[in-house]
Nucleic acid binder design. Structure first.
Lengths: 347, 347
DNA sequence: GTGAAAGCGCTAACAG
DNA sequence: CTGTTAGCGCTTTCAC
């Protein structure tokens, strides 16, 4: 393994010069000629910087602690991880991943990550909710992903819930639906009121009335099916926005029991975030897909920008020669969602 | 941040003694009395070892490089990651995760991981195949997960493909099926011949004939549906083992076109590894679930055992007080699969 | 038993 | 401009 000392010896210069040159801080300090010599020697010897030694000195590791959940049971955590990793990789960071799935002790995992000197944390949940960030994380740069911090102490990144409601409803309107129901969630989720407002705004924008009778919020249980059934019988909606796939299931089931065909007699758009639907029903739902990858990506960007004080470190040597993309204040706090067309909406 | 020097100063001993004690190598070197004093001082000061400094000295980081793929699109990578992390965590390691999904440059990611001094690599694929391990990894401890190394140079861990074929076929036999078809994969996959042998062995064990006419291998394309249709018409099977969910789809579709109901007229068991099925069909398949978590878990165990020469490092201080579980040669090379019962098999 | 001292590979002051 | 020096926090001989 070649060290800076080796390079210094062979090039006949000092470690210090080598360090300066290889970290791109040579201009005005090291003669271009010697700098070039150093660079060539480094390349010839196949020098690879020892990140450990560097970190020990600088107190910066370029390590991001990623704390996730439900990593094994949904593909969503994977999406977030991948997005975060792409961003991290772009800016010269790496993810130290831990999952709190089976873990009794989140704190233990946090302690371990701290031991490795992570520069900051990505604290990620699998659906948008208000969460308590462990106090042990308070001193670190941290970004909450797919959730928000109860104390609003840390920046967070969430899906654009309003837009979800708006887009889905718009799609139903475009499909020709005249009586569009909102099948929501009776639990106190962040997303619920926001999606509802999106739904209502889409209706208003289209000059359609907002009829409270078309709005039901249900839990994930037996009575839910009756409530939705009643909605079918009393209101006869021709379009449904479903808060998630569990809610979509009630709509599909109710439709089936009434001899109605989804995609012909009624149209359904739902948000796919619990994977129940995809595994249970056919044909698949027209879906508003939650932007997990994007949240991971922008979450990591924001974290890095916090860590670096909005100044990207360009001293990643020698693999990265291209300048890093600028990382500035244009990082979004909410992310739009894609609408995935399937067969459940009339053309 | 408390360092060993701080402890030494306060306890009135030397750094060396502190190091010995806190790493559990004090017996016979440090007087029990001073050892106790050191431990108490450390606890009082809330000492946390600096893993970076330790690693710089020892050339051991307790970092495992995890190289995965399809992290964002399937829940399977997540399963492997979680399993690997659980094992890692148990033995005092952490996962440094990178995914090669969108990556043009796997090598770049590898270089980065090396810079952090990972002790070894988990090289993971998302379905069992023969893979080339990047040459740049050759000098490191490495375990291939859910694949095998073409050069058989590295240990690997795979699903027990024979058992998959055997269990699935056994299930169909138990369900009363008399003519069980094998709908396989015409691509050259490792799993194909092994599952086929499992299928054949299960039939033999049950005293049933092996009829080649009941065995078709298809690609994932249009003709496949015709081949399976022909199988239905000419052989009239009453049970189907499907290589994966894509193959299961051909069976479901063919059945539907002939007015046959899965779970009543015919029974179907399949291996769920491409998620196509789950998103496309109802009712869900009776499934042989691939043991992703387990492969991750045992893969990490094997890697750690290679790294440590079958001797687990117990110097994880101070959080881990309980002795680590023994890590020995009982690590499996193949992992059994769970059979998940759904509605597609007659009782 | 215990402590002093020499580094691991790198960065950052400070001389020259 | 360039080299010397002093560590970052820890482990590990090797004297005492």
């Amino acid at each position: 393994m070649t060290t800076m000392q080796d390079i210094a010896d062979i090039a006949g210069v000092s470690k210090a010069s080598v360090s300066l040159v290889l970290n791109g801080r040579d201009v005005g300090h090291v003669k271009p000629q010697t700098a070039e010599l150093i660079r060539q020697t480094a390349a010839k010897l196949g020098y690879r910087p020892n990140q450990l030694a560097r970190s020990l000195r600088t107190h910066r590791t370029h390590l991001l602690g990623f704390i996730g959940e439900q990593v094994a049971t949904t593909p969503y955590a994977g999406g977030i991880i991948l997005g975060a990793q792409d961003a991290a990789s772009t800016y010269g960071y790496v993810l130290l991943t831990v999952s709190t799935d089976g873990m009794a002790d989140e704190e233990q995992e946090i302690t371990v990550l701290k031991r490795y000197g992570v520069d900051g944390f990505l604290y990620s949940k699998m659906f948008n909710r208000i969460t308590d960030v462990p106090r042990s994380l308070a001193d670190y740069p941290l970004v909450v992903v797919d959730a928000i911090d109860r104390d609003k102490q840390f920046p967070s990144i969430e899906p654009d819930e309003f837009q979800i409601g708006y887009d889905a409803t718009k799609r139903l309107i475009d499909a020709g639906c005249r009586r569009i129901a909102y099948v929501g969630c009776a639990e106190p989720l962040i997303a619920q009121p926001r999606r509802l407002r999106g739904y209502q705004t889409a209706l208003s924008d289209a000059g359609m009335p907002i009829d409270d009778a078309l709005h039901v919020d249900v839990l994930n249980n037996e009575p839910a099916l009756q409530v939705v059934g009643k909605l079918f019988d009393e209101q006869r909606p021709d379009g449904f926005f479903c808060f998630n796939d569990a809610r979509a299931w009630y709509v599909y089931e109710s439709a089936a029991r009434r001899g109605l065909t989804v995609g012909r007699d009624i149209s359904v758009v739902g948000v796919d975030n619990h994977r129940v639907f995809a595994e249970t029903l056919a044909p698949p739902l027209t879906t508003v897909e939650l932007p997990h990858y994007e949240m991971g990506y922008w979450g990591a960007c924001r974290l890095i920008s916090v860590i670096e004080g909005h100044d990207v470190d360009t001293s990643i040597w020698p693999e990265t020669t291209a300048p890093l993309p600028p990382l500035d204040a244009t990082i979004p706090a909410t992310v739009h969602c894609k609408l995935i067309e399937k067969k459940s909406v009339r053309k």
